[in-house]
């Protein structure tokens, strides 16, 4: 009897398991299917936040310019006094957007450079026939480079002229009697494009020299150096690098080429700048040029660099 009752209990358990088994099978199958669909639809490699941070480096340059109050006030005064016509400002802006996008120049840097050079007066120097003319204060040697040596630093530079004007407008000259001619530097789009090309050449030259020596750099910092070269020549920049390297060593030079804070301290170091330029020019000239270069660089930084990366005094106080 005991054996029989045990057998009955066992057979009952087996029958329950038999009833359950298909349900368990369905449960397992549906779990596996869900898991497969889940993995199939999920992204193959989820990017970690660290990777995003490393790849997308924020630019040093301001999205809205001028960033400093001094230039903002000056710009307002120029507009209020009709010295800067609204139509001219729009035309400068339009050409600037196209040129900076094509050449990958930070927009604020190009705008601030033109503002610093001529206060956006595209006819600057036309009356008294100065040696430096127009929006970007071009000299006859700047014209020579754009007209005859444009492809020295980049073979693609000339394409910007086709993109902007439909054909090669060179030779560009300061046509006093035909201001609106596309080949006239007094014409706003021509002046903006030619100045952008000249600035781009300085950048290409500096980066090529660094690439040849396998020295790494932050492109934004080199754009600031290119603005310096636009004002006082590539020679001044190279002498500053030589002097800095000799005085502080290659590691410090690497920091200078990669760190805005180092660049700011360097740009404020009057004795260093004076010493470097004194290797090129004799005493009265080197003193005057180093002062000019320091003011120029300070103004460009205050105007073009993002306010988030600037000390407040740079945004509010600027010498001309």
């Amino acid at each position: 009897m005991d054996n029989e009752s045990q057998n009955n209990a066992l057979s009952q358990k087996v029958s329950i398991l038999r009833q359950l088994f298909p349900k368990l099978w369905v449960l397992l199958f549906s779990t596996a299917l869900t898991g497969t669909i889940w993995f199939a639809l999920s992204p193959k490699k989820a990017p970690s936040p660290m990777v995003i941070e490393a790849n997308i480096k924020p630019t040093l340059f301001a999205a809205h310019y001028p960033a400093n109050t001094k230039f903002q006030t000056e710009l307002t005064q120029l507009k209020n006094s009709q010295t800067l016509q609204e139509q001219d400002e729009l035309e400068i802006h339009k050409a600037l957007l196209s040129a900076s996008e094509y050449l990958d120049i930070p927009q604020s840097l190009l705008w601030c450079l033109l503002f610093q050079e001529s206060r956006l007066n595209h006819l600057e120097g036309i009356e008294n026939e100065k040696a430096s003319l127009g929006l970007g204060q071009f000299s006859r040697f700047s014209f020579f480079e754009i007209n005859y040596q444009l492809e020295r630093y980049s073979s693609e530079s000339v394409n910007l002229l086709y993109l902007m004007f439909g054909h090669d407008i060179r030779p560009i000259t300061a046509k006093k009697r035909d201001l609106l001619h596309p080949s006239s530097y007094y014409s706003i789009p021509t002046a903006v494009v030619a100045s952008a090309l000249y600035l781009n050449n300085r950048y290409k030259h500096l980066t090529r020299l660094l690439d040849n020596r396998a020295i790494s750099y932050d492109p934004d910092i080199i754009w600031l150096f290119s603005a310096m070269a636009y004002n006082k020549g590539t020679r001044s920049v190279l002498n500053l690098w030589n002097t800095y390297q000799k005085k502080k060593g290659p590691e410090a030079l690497y920091r200078l080429l990669n760190d805005l804070e180092y660049f700011r301290r360097f740009a404020e170091d009057s004795p260093l700048m004076m010493r470097a330029l004194n290797k090129i020019w004799e005493e009265p000239q080197s003193r005057a040029y180093s002062k000019e270069l320091q003011i120029h660089t300070g103004n460009i930084m205050a105007c073009a660099v993002s306010p988030l990366l600037q000390p407040i005094r740079h945004l509010t106080e600027v010498e001309r």
Partner: peptide, 23 residues
């Protein structure tokens, strides 16, 4: 020589006066 002049002037890029270039 014309190209040489332009290269040297653009390299030093001082004020465009006779006394602008280095000696």
């Amino acid at each position: 020589f014309e190209e040489l002049t332009s290269n040297i002037w653009n390299y030093e890029n001082p004020k465009i006066t006779n006394a602008g270039l280095s000696i």
